[in-house]
């Protein structure tokens, strides 16, 4: 079973990486959300998975009878879930504030801390052209639309 989970973890990580490499701050955050799920699943898998045997000691026993799932990774993941959520929420708020301050979520345009060199061209491969998907704002200006 762990092998299958490993493949799924790989797919989640690949999707998260693709999102994180995006220019759009919000998509980067979506990537982080997926990545934190993938990381939790990775720890869970690395501690081996067991079906139908929760790490609970029956009420009248001192030690668990028979097989039980590995409790240690579960304890680690439980806090990781909550912390991951705290991180994501904070990052979202931070991005929102960044958007308010700079009126853009394009990370290429967020160059206040590191202004571009006078002769610097933007990274290659991005032509910055508008895709036909959404073409409501004027060309070259940030579009102000609510969530679709």
């Amino acid at each position: 079973m762990e092998n299958v989970l490993a493949i799924v973890v790989g797919i989640l990580v690949a999707c998260a990486t693709f999102l994180i490499l995006s220019r759009d701050l919000i998509r980067i955050l979506l990537g982080i959300a997926i990545l934190s799920n993938a990381a939790n699943l990775l720890i869970f898998t690395a501690g081996r998975v067991t079906r139908d045997a929760p790490p609970l000691v029956p009420g009248d026993l001192e030690v668990p009878a028979g097989a039980y799932a590995n409790p240690l990774p579960q304890a680690l993941i439980l806090t990781a879930i909550v912390i991951g959520f705290g991180l994501l929420a904070f990052a979202l708020v931070l991005s929102y504030r960044a958007y308010v301050a700079m009126r853009t979520v394009d990370v290429d345009a967020m160059r206040e801390a590191e202004p571009p060199y006078p002769d610097q061209s933007p990274p290659t491969g991005e032509d910055g052209r508008q895709t036909p998907l959404r073409r409501r704002g004027a060309a070259g200006t940030p579009t102000r639309e609510a969530a679709q």
């Binding site: 759009d24 979202l92 979520v105 290429d108 508008q130 895709t131 959404r134 639309e145 609510a146």
Partner: peptide, 16 residues
């Protein structure tokens, strides 16, 4: 959050 932050059309990646 996303209610307040719009989609950034400029930020789409090219094919390459």
């Amino acid at each position: 959050v996303l209610m307040r932050v719009p989609l950034e059309v400029r930020a789409f990646r090219g094919l390459g």
